[in-house]
Amino acid sequence: MSKEWPLWEVFIRGQHGLSHRHVGSLHAPDAEMAIKNARDVYTRRNEGQSIWVVEARHITASSPSEKGPLYEPSESKVYRHPTFFDIPDDVGAM
């Protein structure tokens, strides 16, 4: 056989209400089988409550060369973090 099953990326939502998180990938002929395989491979130890699969070719990723333009602007904006502001202890928790 020359044709390989497509590659799927697998996202799992764990037990504590967090978002789905990328855990890995696998090959499967279709979405239904991808979910079944993901269950077998990535949730053998109660890691998941919910599975998303998406064919890898549908994912658009940012390119490493764009790192500067994409992320540098936020480096100088320290005021976006709460610790930037000094609140006197007397004010209490904020």
Binding site: M1, E4, L7, G24, S25, L26, H27, D40, V41, R44
Partner: peptide, 26 residues
């Protein structure tokens, strides 16, 4: 059985890592 199944999974994680370098599983 659970252990041998784990080994299959370990093989799969590693093949996937190799595939990101541009080689196919087959």
């Amino acid at each position: 059985l659970a252990k041998v199944q784990d080994e299959a999974g370990h093989g799969l994680y590693l093949y996937c890592a190799a595939e990101t370098l541009g080689v196919s599983r087959d």
